[in-house]
Amino acid sequence: ENVFHPVECSYCHSESMMGFRYRCQQCHNYQLCQDCFWRGHAGGSHSNQHQMKEYTSWKS
């Protein structure tokens, strides 16, 4: 089941984030949609070496 997250992806700027959401544990307010995370995208001061937390629902 695809879950809708009402936040913007920090890389592709999609405002309709579906599926899993990934939030960086080091960068303030840096979040990736499932597609950008799986493709290994990073931007700004974010590094792929940073720990990311996976969210499967909006409330989590």
Rank of each mutant, 00 (worst) to 15 (best):
G40A: 03
E8F: 07
C27E: 01
C24D: 03
V7D: 11
E8M: 04
C33M: 01
L32M: 01
K53W: 03
S47D: 12
W38Y: 15
R23P: 02
H41V: 14
Q51P: 08
H13C: 06
S16L: 12
V7T: 10
N29W: 06
M18C: 06
N48P: 14
G43N: 14
C33Y: 00
Q34Y: 07
L32V: 08
C24A: 01
G43L: 05
Q51K: 12
Q49M: 07
Q51V: 08
W58I: 15
F20V: 14
V3A: 09
V7I: 10
H13P: 01
S45C: 12
C33K: 00
Y22A: 08
C9N: 00
N29A: 10
M52S: 01
C9M: 00
Q31C: 07
D35N: 13
N29Y: 06
Q51A: 09
G19E: 08
G43Y: 04
Q34I: 00
R39F: 04
Y55T: 14
S60V: 12
S45M: 05
Y55A: 09
W58E: 15
M17G: 13
N29D: 12
M17F: 11
W38K: 15
R23W: 05
S10C: 11
G19D: 10
S45Y: 02
N2S: 15
N29M: 10
T56Q: 12
E1L: 01
E15V: 12
N29L: 08
C27R: 00
F4Q: 07
S45R: 07
Q51H: 04
C27F: 03
S60G: 13
Q51L: 07
G43F: 02
C27I: 00
S60Q: 15
P6D: 13
K59A: 13
N29E: 07
H5E: 14
V3L: 13
K59G: 15
R21K: 12
S16Y: 04
Y30Q: 02
G19A: 15
N29K: 07
S45T: 13
Q49Y: 05
Q25V: 12
R23Y: 07
K53T: 07
E8T: 05
S14Y: 04
C33P: 02
Q49S: 12
A42C: 06
Y30A: 03
H46A: 06
S57M: 12
H46C: 03
S10Q: 03
A42E: 13
G19T: 07
W58K: 15
S57F: 03
H28K: 14
W58M: 15
H5C: 10
M18P: 14
C9T: 00
S45H: 04
C33D: 00
H50L: 01
F37K: 11
C36W: 00
Y55N: 07
S47Y: 02
W38C: 15
N48R: 06
C12K: 00
M18S: 14
E8A: 03
W58L: 12
S16R: 12
C12M: 00
F4H: 09
S10P: 03
F4M: 10
K53N: 04
M52L: 05
A42W: 04
Q31T: 13
C27W: 01
R23L: 11
H13M: 08
C24Y: 00
M18Q: 15
E1Y: 11
N2P: 08
D35R: 09
S57K: 11
R21T: 13
T56V: 07
A42Q: 09
N29F: 11
R39Y: 08
G19K: 14
E15I: 12
G19F: 05
L32R: 01
A42T: 09
Q34N: 07
Q31P: 02
S14D: 07
H13G: 10
C12W: 00
Q49G: 14
S45V: 05
R39H: 13
V7W: 09
Q49H: 07
H50C: 04
M17C: 09
Q25W: 01
H5V: 08
P6H: 13
C9K: 00
E15C: 06
E15M: 13
S45D: 15
R39P: 02
Q49R: 12
R39L: 09
M17L: 12
Q31D: 11
Q25F: 04
Q26E: 09
F20E: 15
C33Q: 02
N29Q: 14
C33A: 02
M52G: 02
C36F: 00
K53F: 04
R23H: 15
C27N: 00
S45K: 12
N48V: 12
Y55W: 13
S14C: 09
Y55Q: 09
G19R: 09
R39A: 14
G43W: 06
G43Q: 03
D35Y: 11
S14I: 06
D35M: 10
Q31N: 06
S45G: 14
H28Q: 11
Q26V: 15
H5T: 08
Q49A: 13
S57R: 07
C36P: 02
G44N: 04
G44K: 06
E8Q: 07
R21V: 06
R21E: 09
V7C: 11
S57Q: 09
W38L: 15
G44L: 01
Q34E: 12
H5G: 08
H41D: 04
C33W: 01
Y55S: 15
H5S: 07
N48E: 07
P6N: 12
Q25D: 08
F37M: 13
C33E: 02
Y55V: 15
N2Y: 10
S14E: 09
F20S: 15
V3W: 04
F20I: 13
Q51N: 08
S45N: 07
W38T: 15
H13T: 09
Q25M: 13
R23G: 07
S47C: 08
G44Y: 03
C27V: 00
V3E: 12
F20G: 15
H13Q: 06
V3I: 11
W58N: 15
Q25P: 03
Q34A: 09
M52Y: 06
E1N: 04
K53H: 07
S47T: 10
A42D: 05
Q26A: 11
H50D: 03
T56R: 09
C27Y: 02
N29P: 03
A42I: 03
F20T: 14
D35L: 06
E1A: 05
T56Y: 02
L32H: 04
W58R: 13
S47V: 06
F4E: 13
G40F: 06
V7L: 10
G19W: 06
Q26C: 04
C9A: 00
S16G: 08
M17T: 13
C33R: 01
C36R: 01
W38P: 07
